[in-house]
């Protein structure tokens, strides 16, 4: 009996491992930046390049940094959701316009609407490298101390928003206000 059982058990284990492997997205690489300080940057603003914006200015606030570009197809999918969430006002969304032509980026925002408090231009993608960006869109939730608490690789989905980003942002805001 065991003679027939052993191969069956091995087969079963193999199937379980393969099934788990199939369900995972190999493009989702765990970011080493989670729970680390968000890399500092000071970049010109997209709408007014004479003004700059730095991550430092957001100290004491919970905010989202969304990496986007007009050439990025998934960003287009994500965009209506961001507009909806920005309107909700739970957490301010800032944009990092990654390796884009400012005129294309501005046209894109004009056409599809602008969910961002403001966007900054990372023309050569150097700040993107600091943030470990490898596939726009990517979204970082950053807390009052400037620590990255969550990173979404690929478009933010309603599921991710409801289950991860929103609860975590609300929790952080609650902690911040009692401190």
């Amino acid at each position: 009996m065991t003679r027939y059982l052993i191969p069956l058990v091995i087969f079963g284990v193999l199937v379980v491992f393969l099934a788990i492997g199939l369900g995972r997205d190999p493009h989702e690489v765990p970011s080493p930046l989670i729970n680390k300080a968000a890399p500092a940057f000071k970049l010109p603003q997209l709408k007014d390049p004479s003004k700059s914006f730095s991550a430092e200015e957001m100290r004491g606030r919970v905010w989202l940094l969304n990496v986007w570009a007009s050439w990025c197809i998934s960003c287009r999918d994500e965009h209506p959701l961001l507009i909806e969430y920005a309107r909700g006002g739970a957490v301010p969304i800032y944009g990092l316009n990654y390796k884009d032509k400012p005129e294309d980026a501005l046209a894109w925002l004009g056409e599809l609407g602008d969910p961002y408090v403001l966007s900054v231009s990372d023309l050569d993608g150097r700040i993107g490298i600091d943030y470990g960006v490898y596939g726009a869109p990517e979204t970082y939730l950053i807390d009052q101390q400037g620590v990255i608490r969550f990173k979404q690789i690929g478009p933010v989905t309603p599921d991710v928003w409801r289950k991860s980003i929103l609860p975590l942002a609300q929790e952080l805001n609650r902690q911040g206000s009692t401190r």
Binding site: V29, P30, S31, P32, L33, I129, D130, Y131, G132, Y134
Partner: peptide, 8 residues
């Protein structure tokens, strides 16, 4: 590089 992108 590993600081930014991980051991991957």
């Amino acid at each position: 590089l590993t600081q930014r992108y991980g051991d991957f």
